[in-house]
């Protein structure tokens, strides 16, 4: 029976519903917890988060994939309480957003150790929470090229993915030749990898999205909503129309079954100000209406937000 690990335990794939495949309850760079300027009381954190998840649920959202890696403020027992109280399935990640977010203990670790750690978090649980990871996060450090540590993390992720059947999700799809070489060497089929952030404003030009798709990878247009039109856009923002056209062009070339889409929003950011007005609900409030307006039918929308994530997230055995 196809299943997915959520923070409250495995669920049948049929129950996932509409999936936001790359989101964050709250993200902060490691060390940001030392800087009181970002601190929020538990009341504030729940207050900023619960209404967004409830709204997501009321819009028909089923599953929220939290792509926050180890050391980035990942907080599984908090996610468990949020999931239990709002009814939204939450899938947590093992792995790292990039080598530059792995703290020294992990930065010094071997590929074997990292693979054992990821596997433990998928099969036994994360810390003492009992919650198991449903996805493995990897990524490219700041600077545009994979560092040695990034590569060790990708290789360990590939091994843990093969051992457990859980898929891999990447932060950035630049330097994809190196990433694909590692996955291929390790024997991980590329449909078990979601190459994320191909649509981001800084890297879209440098990302070989069609080439990655030709190799068999899944493609994540998963920074929808980070728009230059926002009152205070982040440096990775992109004009709304440009991103939408990029997405439509990409699926128009017969790649509908390879795409996933998400908003990469923070419900309540941990170590940065966040982006005012941007939430996971962009998917319902802006993106799906835009896709309908562009002529996509309900079957295509279901493929992007329900069927593709179900096939990607199902533990492969």
């Amino acid at each position: 029976m196809p299943r997915v690990n959520t923070v409250l335990g495995p669920i049948p794939t049929e129950e996932l519903g509409l999936v936001a495949v790359h989101e964050h309850i709250g993200y902060g760079m490691p060390g940001s917890e030392l800087d009181t300027r970002w601190w929020k009381t538990p009341e504030e954190r729940y207050d900023e988060t619960v209404p967004k998840l409830r709204q997501f649920h009321e819009y028909g959202g089923g599953t929220f994939v939290d792509a926050t890696g180890i050391c980035n403020g990942r907080d599984v027992n908090y996610y468990q309480s949020l999931s239990e109280k709002t009814g939204v399935h939450i899938v947590a990640s093992t792995g790292f957003v990039g080598g530059d977010t792995a703290l020294p203990f992990f930065a010094r670790a071997t590929v074997d150790y990292l693979a054992a750690h990821f596997t433990h978090e998928i099969t036994v649980g994360i810390g003492n929470t009992g919650g198991k990871a449903g996805i493995i996060k990897v990524g490219v450090s700041r600077g545009g090229r994979m560092t040695d540590l990034d590569k060790r993390i990708y290789r360990a992720a590939a091994r843990a993915a093969l051992a457990t059947g859980v898929p891999v999700l990447t932060h950035l799809a630049i330097d994809a030749e190196n990433a694909i070489a590692i996955f291929t060497e390790e024997g991980l089929p590329l449909d078990r990898v979601l190459f994320g952030h191909v649509d981001d404003g800084v890297n879209a030009d440098k990302t070989r999205d069609t080439w990655i798709a030709d190799q068999g990878g899944r493609i994540g247009f998963d920074t929808f909503g980070y728009e230059t039109e926002l009152p205070d856009p982040p440096f990775w923002a992109r004009p709304r129309k440009e991103r939408l056209e990029h997405f439509l062009r990409f699926i128009g070339e017969g790649r509908l079954h390879q795409v996933l889409a998400s908003a990469d929003a923070n419900c309540s950011p941990l170590g940065w100000p966040g982006v005012e007005g941007h939430t996971v609900n962009y998917i319902f409030e802006d993106l799906i209406p835009d896709l309908r307006a562009a002529g996509l039918d309900e079957a295509a929308i279901r493929t992007i937000f329900v069927d593709n994530p179900a096939s990607f997230l199902s533990i492969a055995n």
Partner: peptide
């Protein structure tokens, strides 16, 4: 430097 968190080394600014 090696023992610092990424918050201090590669902050979410461009460039980091």
């Amino acid at each position: 430097e090696e023992l610092l968190g990424g918050y201090f080394l590669t902050p979410q600014t461009n460039p980091p």
